[in-house]
Design a protein around this nucleic acid. Structure first.
Lengths: 336, 336
DNA sequence: TTGAAAGCGTTACCAC
DNA sequence: GTGGTAACGCTTTCAA
């Protein structure tokens, strides 16, 4: 692999000059520049990023922390992120996390700008003391799918999403509604599930409908726990006629459970999810859509902005929208 | 951020000695080692990876190339990969590709061991001249979901998968079967779809069933094109009673199309997919399962092996399995 | 067992 | 405009 010195030798200039034409910082005489460019072309030279980072004291890598498997929606966000970052001069270093503790350990290790330009957290919200460490190191942090005041983030109004779900179900006549979501400690600090439930419940209450404790089922692992939770709901003496799942990943588990009990959806049970992951269409799942891929795109842009222009604290709210498909319908009179 | 020099100063030794204790290469006297360790602890020192890579002439980053959005299955493979790599000393640099041309350009740029330790390609199969370049640079390459002779790879027997699908459909009585898959040029060089179709067709033929040309629909974009393709199939004078989709992502499109025509699945149309992505359960999709997450795990292990022990050319075949759910059933007599 | 010093490929400061 | 050179943080001979 050719180095800057070889290019310099070939062009008959000093390495410093080659560096200048590469980075276009100071002015270089046109004929000189052309000779250098020719040499670069000839040798098929590409600057070594490590050496560059070392010399500059700045990395050109953006660290992305995400629970990749946790939820299909994360992959879509990641796609938006990766597509944008791949077009930039920055590399995307991916770290897949499963627990909040993992995230904590991880963040404390990489909190230095000479190793990493920025960190983007997808659907993860670490405790504020870890954030403080990153802030102290002046590493820009951006959250995708979390609203943290004073920090760059892109998020949706989960409360509004919860309301939309409640109103839809209420409007088609349901009065026995249940919620299946994340446990507070399983969710990597991510508060979306909780917010959705709160707004859901408030909207029900405002309509004079109660959300009894036994109709609130929280679990850690998306589809699997949701299936289990749903089975418990269905086994109640007076089971719900509709279920709001905090994510489409969980809605998948709800559907599985319903089908395993040979229930018809939406005949016997209406199901509404949250996210509108790509497979939601094929499942015919009614859901609250949020722009998934875009959230990644914007997250990447915010990070790039922050790295290049030191702009910080931008908050970006994306819209939520009710998408009605085949999994919700008025309740079966027999089951009311 | 502390450097090796500061640790050395604190421990009252030379940087060389600190380096030795970090890397455990040469012997260091126990008391010395302990002083160094204490200093490292005290200063909360972590070696700078860039500097290390530069000095060593070897990178500790593994490049992963994958069409993240293309297919939900890719995300699951990526998860296995990331989990394994994150536990190793290697960083995972993610590059999301959408076209074969992108992949080609990319690969030619990173073909040097001082910048990247290995490259793992998920569901992508570049032309052999690009591989040659990587091979020449002695960068280990591993394929996940592609079978390339002489190169590390983990794959499944797509032919067997195609056979399983055909036999299942045949065994429950279908005689009018269609195939929805990838176009040859859209598929990033990935030959899975083609292989599945070939074996599917051969198995049908062996049973005396023809797969007419108009029953073979190929498209580029997973669910969207598959939906369109299915609509065309359904509009035929004598439409198929069962569809084999080359991937679950495409099966989602097939289901959508069927529902949009108000057809009952499996009453009016049986659908079988390939992959068993996590949402397949919720969709009740009959499918040919392949170990997705494991493919990533093994891919990562092969890469690590190759980097550390120079072992090359390992081929790893994972099993396929028919998973019967609710989307397939004997054909409706009226439609036969 | 340990230290001094050169070198990895780049950038940036200071002269010319 | 351009070249020389120190510096970035680490590893690794070569001596001691």
């Amino acid at each position: 692999m050719p180095t800057i010195a070889e290019v310099a030798a070939m062009a008959g200039v000093s390495p410093a000059t080659v560096s200048r034409v590469i980075n276009g910082r100071t002015s270089v005489a046109t004929p000189t520049r052309e000779r250098v460019l020719a040499a670069i072309e000839e040798l098929d030279y590409t600057p070594n990023r490590m050496a560059r980072a070392l010399s500059l004291g700045k990395s050109a890598a953006i660290y992305v922390v995400a629970p990749v498997s946790d939820n299909p929606s994360v992959a879509q966000r990641l796609h938006g992120l990766a597509t944008t970052l791949n077009q930039s001069a920055f590399e995307l270093i991916l770290h897949d996390v499963e627990t909040a503790a993992q995230t904590a350990r991880l963040l404390s290790e990489l909190a230095t700008p000479d190793r990493i330009a920025a960190v983007i957290l997808i659907s993860v919200r670490p405790h504020s003391d870890q954030l403080a460490k990153l802030a102290a190191a002046e590493v820009p942090v951006v959250f995708v799918n979390a609203n943290v005041p004073g920090v760059d983030c892109v998020f949706v109004d989960n409360l509004e999403g919860g309301r939309l779900a409640a109103r839809h179900l209420l409007s088609i006549g349901h009065r026995k509604l249940a919620f299946v979501g994340d446990t507070e400690d399983s969710d990597l600090g991510f508060t979306g599930s909780r917010d959705r439930r709160i707004a859901f419940e408030e909207t029900l209450n405002a309509a004079g409908v109660r959300l009894p404790d036994e109709f609130i089922q929280l679990g850690a692992h998306q589809a699997d726990d949701a299936r289990q939770a749903t089975l418990e709901l269905l086994d109640l003496n007076d089971p719900p006629t509709a279920i709001f799942a905090a994510s489409d990943g969980q809605a998948i588990g709800v559907l599985e459970a319903a089908y395993s009990r040979e229930l018809d959806v939406p005949g016997d049970l209406s199901v509404i999810g949250f996210d509108d992951i790509s497979s939601a269409k094929g499942m015919g799942l009614t859901t609250i859509r949020q722009p998934l891929e875009e959230s990644g795109t914007f997250g990447a842009r915010l990070a790039l902005e922050a790295v290049e222009h030191k702009t910080l604290g931008m908050a970006m709210e994306l819209p939520v929208e009710l998408i009605i498909r085949r999994s919700t319908a008025p309740p079966n009179p027999e089951r009311e």
